[in-house]
């Protein structure tokens, strides 16, 4: 049953384009004024590092959601890629071989997800729920359930290096934002992804290669998650099979905070970046305020609900 589309008011349009940036700015201002040690170079660097993984994965999750799907397997892929990369590096002594193995396996997992969802028409929730568990299991199998320490210095030196005082992982995340923002806004691929999310049947009849685009999106999602897993492993100097559990939900939360429609068709890279930063900022502030982790879960859930409510509210104004 389709609800009638209400015409957006001027306020709604301003909110749509800049609302989350405004919330981010206010939060930042508030934290700077009221949270001790927040506005220090060390803390801000830590904050940026903390959102690096979520940020990278959010780029492709944005595409997934824009096209009307989602991917729950990303947390598992991050862990698996780290473990596999570390294992291959240790076995061959080659950083390149490890990285290639991790990226290729990530892309392959994404490809399989994409084929199941787009070509075979299996529900994305079921497909990626299954691959989430399969890939998590594979990570444990490869590592025998233990962290795999990386013996190649060059690799974790890279993970902990910095350029102009900004850590390399943060640069890489920024690069992802730039790349996928461009892909969304400047290419036919991005527009087609949004069209598919808006109305799959109409897009198909208008000549949009729906299946191919969906498969590519899932493959990219796997590739980027594996990349994020490698970067994380480099930072931690080991591949950990237990890492990033629940990452998929944090990433989807960040995207929703960034105004990406869960039913597809609407996505903006600026707002997604704001969503990612809001998540990181709140987490960081709670840590600085010594709020126990158990309460942090509650707070994060409340923020997500609050963001969705705000989104609803704006449609009435």
């Amino acid at each position: 049953m389709s609800k009638p589309l209400a015409a957006p008011s001027t306020f709604a349009r301003v909110w749509e384009s800049a609302g989350m940036l405004l919330v981010l700015a206010l939060l930042f201002l508030g934290c700077s004024l009221f949270v001790e040690n927040f506005l220090t170079v060390t803390n801000l660097r830590g904050l940026a590092l903390a959102v690096a993984t979520i940020g990278m994965v959010a780029c492709t999750m944005m595409f997934c959601l824009a096209a009307g799907d989602f991917d729950l397997s990303v947390g598992s892929v991050v862990a698996f890629a780290g473990v596999l990369g570390a294992t291959v590096m240790n076995a061959t002594g080659s950083v390149l071989a490890g990285a290639l193995a991790a990226l290729a396996s990530g892309a392959l997992i994404g490809l399989v997800n994409g084929v199941f969802v787009a070509r075979l028409g299996i529900n994305a929730l079921i497909t990626t729920l299954a691959s989430m568990q399969i890939v998590r299991g594979l990570g444990f199998i490869v590592s025998d359930g233990r962290a795999v320490g990386i013996r190649t210095d060059a690799f974790f030196a890279f993970g902990n290096s910095a350029l102009l005082g900004i850590p390399t992982p943060v640069w890489l995340t920024a690069g992802c934002f730039l790349l996928f923002g461009g892909l969304l806004n400047l290419t036919v691929f991005g527009r087609n992804a949004l069209a598919i999310g808006g109305n799959k049947e109409a897009a198909h009849l208008a000549g949009v290669p729906v299946t191919r685009i969906k498969v590519v999106i899932f493959t990219l999602q796997g590739l980027v998650a594996a990349f994020a897993g490698l970067v994380l492993a480099a930072r931690m100097t080991s591949g950990q099979p237990n890492t990033s559990q629940g990452l998929e939900l944090e990433v989807i939360s960040a995207c929703v905070l960034g105004g990406v429609s869960l039913s597809g068709g609407v996505a903006r890279i600026g707002a997604v970046i704001a969503g990612v930063l809001i998540m990181g900022l709140v987490q960081n502030a709670m840590n600085l305020l010594n709020i126990p982790p158990f309460y942090q879960y509650v707070a994060r859930g409340c923020i997500l609900l609050g963001a969705v409510m705000l989104d609803r509210l704006k449609q009435r104004i």
Partner: peptide
């Protein structure tokens, strides 16, 4: 509505 337009995108799109 179902097969022609993409309702939540603009006229130009």
């Amino acid at each position: 509505k179902k097969e022609g337009i993409i309702g939540i995108r603009s006229v130009a799109e």
